[in-house]
Simulated scan of single mutants.
Amino acid sequence: MKRRTLLATAAMGLALAFGGTAEAQMEKVKACFVYVGPIGDGGWTFQHHEGLKAVQEAYGDKVETAFQENVPEGADAERVLTQMALSGCNIIFTTSFGYMDPTNAVAAKFPNVMFEHATGYKRDHPNVSTYNARFYEGRAVQGTIAGRMTKSNKIGYIASFPIPEVIMGINSYYIHAKKVNPDVQLSVIWAYTWFDPAKEADAAKAMIEQGVDVIASHTDSTAPLAEAAKKNGAVIGFGQASDMAEYKPTPRVSSIIDNWAPYYVKRVGALLDGSYEQVDAWEGISGGEVEIGEITEAVPAEVKAEAEAMRDAIADGSYHPFAGPLNKQDGSAWLAEGETAPDGDLLGMNFYVEGISGDIPQ
């Protein structure tokens, strides 16, 4: 159910480095993908499927691809993974957090098949790797736009599940909106879904009725933008996971694009050339896995320039979205002046920063 959770206790033990042993060269690779949603969701699964297409384009007849969409997390996932391994898949990408335990269970039975799990932390076997993206970096850019663009000083965030990845996004969005607009207030609605257009639309509608005029979402459909579009320019939002360009130039004024293609191309290529190793990858804007979609003409030029400057500073390493001084919601110190958040703190984040109202559901 919780696709992209990273638990605090596990996060502290993560080693973001290469390990394991390179494999022998392969003349042809069968690369398989397991998706939690439909490839037409317009967001998370759509972008993973774009990565599959990039693999096909990069390697032509050296690669065969296969995928299965709408695979529930749990026992169904283990069954699908087993079938894929038996069908001759050399590498299997499992693209939802809830596939973590099934991935490791099946990997133990098929040591010659490489398994790659998106957003998880368990690498219980030498043939299991993990990969993720620093989405919070994109939220910093969106927060800057939100803080500058809101007229009501009320901004919103549609959250999926109360897990570290989502909490990171909420905090980064709020911190950067607050930096440019001290009067900003944040409303969070928990949808408890990754993909349910009706629920997502209801959440957006509720926010708009409360006076929110800038909405970010951490769910996978275009429904929040469709709801914002009904307000004829009075409410703006952002594409999530994919560009959602059909809503440009407004209400979609920019987007976070999950670009999995470079990673998928690299990992399949490593099997082909014999350089494949076990990894735990966590890339962001600098690595190309997090992209900031076009900032449209609906955003004033000076705000666009400010947001792009932040994007570029994150990319070159001169700016970190979580830099002190920052306190936790209860006022206790978290980061002192000049400190930046360690990866372990981020991967296990279970608190709001100071200034955000409301509780994180348990």
Rank of each mutant, 00 (worst) to 15 (best):
258 D>E: 13
261 A>M: 10
300 P>G: 08
143 G>A: 07
173 Y>W: 07
240 Q>A: 02
316 D>S: 04
325 P>D: 09
152 S>A: 04
203 A>F: 03
134 R>F: 08
55 V>T: 02
133 A>L: 14
19 G>N: 07
115 F>Q: 03
326 L>K: 10
9 T>D: 10
66 A>D: 10
68 Q>K: 15
337 E>F: 07
284 G>M: 11
284 G>Q: 10
134 R>Y: 09
228 A>M: 04
34 V>K: 01
28 K>E: 14
18 F>I: 14
75 A>H: 13
263 Y>T: 15
69 E>Y: 10
28 K>S: 15
241 A>R: 02
201 A>M: 08
86 L>N: 15
243 D>L: 09
117 H>F: 05
71 V>D: 05
71 V>A: 10
208 I>D: 00
145 I>R: 04
278 Q>T: 08
284 G>D: 11
99 Y>W: 10
261 A>E: 08
173 Y>H: 04
226 A>V: 07
319 Y>Q: 13
65 T>Q: 13
21 T>L: 10
180 V>N: 02
150 T>F: 02
339 E>C: 10
126 P>N: 08
152 S>I: 03
274 G>A: 09
350 N>R: 04
117 H>D: 03
126 P>F: 02
183 D>N: 15
34 V>C: 00
91 I>V: 15
23 E>P: 06
88 G>E: 05
159 A>Q: 02
70 N>G: 14
179 K>P: 03
81 L>I: 09
265 V>L: 04
121 Y>H: 14
27 E>W: 09
269 G>W: 06
32 C>V: 11
131 Y>I: 06
360 I>Y: 06
160 S>D: 03
90 N>R: 04
103 T>Y: 04
146 A>W: 01
143 G>E: 05
306 E>A: 12
234 A>Y: 12
209 E>V: 12
1 M>E: 14
253 V>F: 00
166 V>E: 06
354 E>M: 11
250 T>W: 09
321 P>A: 14
49 H>C: 05
216 A>Y: 04
304 K>C: 02
246 E>A: 14
77 A>D: 03
101 D>R: 12
18 F>S: 13
92 I>V: 12
70 N>Q: 15
185 Q>G: 08
191 A>I: 01
193 T>S: 12
7 L>E: 12
247 Y>V: 01
10 A>W: 01
357 S>Q: 15
315 A>F: 03
32 C>R: 04
264 Y>H: 07
167 I>T: 01
63 V>G: 02
242 S>F: 00
2 K>T: 11
253 V>C: 06
306 E>P: 04
195 F>C: 06
231 K>Q: 14
139 R>H: 12
274 G>V: 06
140 A>D: 05
190 W>Y: 11
321 P>K: 08
86 L>Q: 15
259 N>A: 01
14 L>Q: 10
295 I>L: 10
331 G>S: 07
197 P>G: 00
37 G>P: 00
174 Y>R: 03
201 A>N: 11
135 F>N: 13
287 G>K: 03
204 A>V: 02
192 Y>K: 01
238 F>I: 08
141 V>G: 01
126 P>Q: 07
182 P>W: 09
254 S>P: 05
131 Y>D: 07
329 Q>P: 04
231 K>G: 00
72 P>Q: 13
140 A>H: 06
31 A>R: 05
318 S>N: 11
149 M>G: 10
264 Y>D: 03
200 E>N: 05
284 G>F: 08
201 A>P: 02
93 F>Y: 15
67 F>L: 11
82 T>G: 11
227 E>P: 03
